[in-house]
Design a protein around this nucleic acid. Structure first.
Lengths: 340, 340
DNA sequence: GTGAAAGCGCTAACAC
DNA sequence: GTGTTAGCGCTTTCAC
């Protein structure tokens, strides 16, 4: 039994609360109360209204409700990639769901204009709050939104140009742990390859690695290789680190992409000889030979904390801005325990 | 310079078009036109309005626009997991963006009530259309939404109880290709381990594998092992297949999870001995030893096609329902070319 | 070209 | 308890 179509371009008209009220023989207000589970409605009215709703297949229009009440029940997450392994995002989704919040996730895709586009769009949609894994270098354009009361939380990296809540891993400790672990296994020459120092985490981790070298009385030359993660750049860095006069016997890789690129550059044979500790968990790390020792971020905690910070700010817009640093954990699997 | 706060719970009031109109000394209508880039506005008005918008940091409220115009410019994607590697979702997001559509993605998380909840919620939000990777067994409850004109497209699997557009891989051909490939490399006894036949793809793939065995005049006993993907079940199936009187020398795995579970059950040594062709691409397949030969789905095509089907239906709700079958491709990498 | 007024579908004051 | 009424912020007929 197909519905009659309205005149608006072939799309059938949906019943509204007015239609339901008419069908049930009650006032519009009563329908609204039933829909919102207001306990002060007489049971006979409830059943009449529910019957009408079922008869007409009425579904309340969420947009109208949002416009009227002012809240959307939706938070936004602007992350680098949805549709990739992203435990932070998974945690955000689950936590949001547990709080009764809908999640609108979008990929900034390592593109600054796109990030801006997404954030502005989320603001125009008047989402209840936004979590962003910032990519761009300047977010001052969001100041008016902040002034207008839009709750905003940065994840994994701080934002520049504005002051917002932030949750991220303890990058410095992670690098220190990796260095120390390799050092404990007898390595004297330990090299670092990681992301560009133009990137926040690349900057923090490279700096932490230099600090570790200094703390162990090691020279820095030839051992610290931050830069873009391309096959060429990484292979060249590997070459410098491993084939100099005083070659490194162990390696710390600064993020997942670096780790994978290094493994591909080395090839299975060489990779099995070199002690490696990666920063960031790697998918299938246990199936590699040797299995990969990594410094794992508490990604789930980070995502959950991001939502909690956001909700705290939604509840109290005037609370002081807060930065939460989440510890990291060493996962010992084999590659980091190879002897020099 | 902090804004004055409205009385609504500490959240400052945002300027509306009325405020902009007053500030600019023009009519509300004129502001609307400027915001929507209506070319029939005098340039001096445009600049006056734009100045007012900038002065007040006005952002049009998307919800109100949507309510008035009836369209949201947003499509929904209910997939099993966002935040996991999901090339279909990545393709959906990119294609949607290219079409000027916002994407609202949510994880059904292998949970039928949750899937239902998400889909109903998307309908209540009056999204312009929904793409769903169906999980539940009965979607008849969506019939009223279909009748009300909600465009709906199934991805990877058909939906049951309702008739909607669908895009999915050619499962049967994929299994045939895998079998044929192993057969060509000299294998006579080829086993299959895959997902439960309660699942659509598990059903299709197991059936296709039986058909392949029959076509090659092979017996079926002991070679076809569909079932839940647990370590115990898969290891037991492996045991049966590989350690009988007439052991299999090659294996077809029915999906990614099966492939990974098999590799973990076998361990590196045994895995290197057994010819394996996996259905579905596996992350880091190239880093394994031997690298994994797989039948890869054209995931990007599937996602793009889903959006295209959805847009076609949005444009013409009365067009005939269509199912698109996307071919699969063999990726030769090593594991499928081992001799018996 | 611009301006007043109606209304998208819902919720929340108010009286009854 | 229930019904009437006035909006939420925007777009869009219509006259001007």
């Amino acid at each position: 039994m197909s519905q009659a179509r309205g005149g608006n371009g072939g799309r059938p008209k949906r019943p509204t609360m007015v239609d339901v009220a008419r069908e049930a023989g009650v006032a519009l207000r009563t329908v609204s109360r039933v829909v919102n589970n207001d306990p002060t409605v007489g049971p006979e009215y409830v059943s009449k209204v529910e019957a009408a709703i079922a008869a007409l297949n009425f579904r309340p229009d969420e947009r109208a409700r949002q416009l009227r009440t002012g809240v959307t029940g939706t938070i936004g997450a602007a992350v680098r990639r949805i549709a990739e392994v992203n435990p932070e995002l998974a945690a955000i989704e689950q936590t949001a769901r547990d709080c009764g919040l809908t999640l609108l996730a979008a990929s900034t895709d390592f593109d600054e204009p796109r990030e801006r586009e997404i954030l502005i769009s989320m603001c125009r949609q008047r989402l209840d709050g936004i979590i962003v894994e910032p990519y761009g270098e300047n977010h001052a354009y969001l100041q008016p939104e902040l002034d207008a009361g839009m709750p905003l939380v940065a994840m994994d990296r701080p934002m520049s140009g504005i002051s917002v809540d932030c949750v991220m891993s303890d990058n410095a400790s992670g690098i220190g742990i990796a260095f120390h672990h390799l050092s404990q296994h007898g390595h004297r020459r330990i090299a670092y390859i990681g992301d560009s120092e133009l990137v926040f985490s690349g900057r923090e981790r490279a700096a932490a690695f230099r600090a570790a070298l200094r703390a162990h009385g090691q020279p820095i030359e030839g051992l610290v290789h931050p830069g873009p993660i391309t096959t060429e750049r990484v292979c060249a860095a590997l070459d410098t680190a491993l084939h100099g006069d005083d070659p490194a016997t162990a390696l710390v890789t600064g993020n997942m992409d670096t780790t994978l690129t290094v493994l591909r550059c080395l090839g299975p044979q060489a990779a099995a000889q070199l002690a490696i500790v990666g920063f960031d968990e790697v998918p299938l790390a246990d199936l590699l030979q040797p299995a990969l020792t990594v410094v794992a971020q508490e990604t789930f905690t980070i995502g959950r904390t991001a939502v909690e910070l956001l909700r705290a700010r939604m509840a109290d817009p005037s609370r002081p801005v807060q930065t939460v640093v989440v510890p990291v954990t060493l996962k010992v699997r084999g590659s980091g325990e190879l002897k020099p």
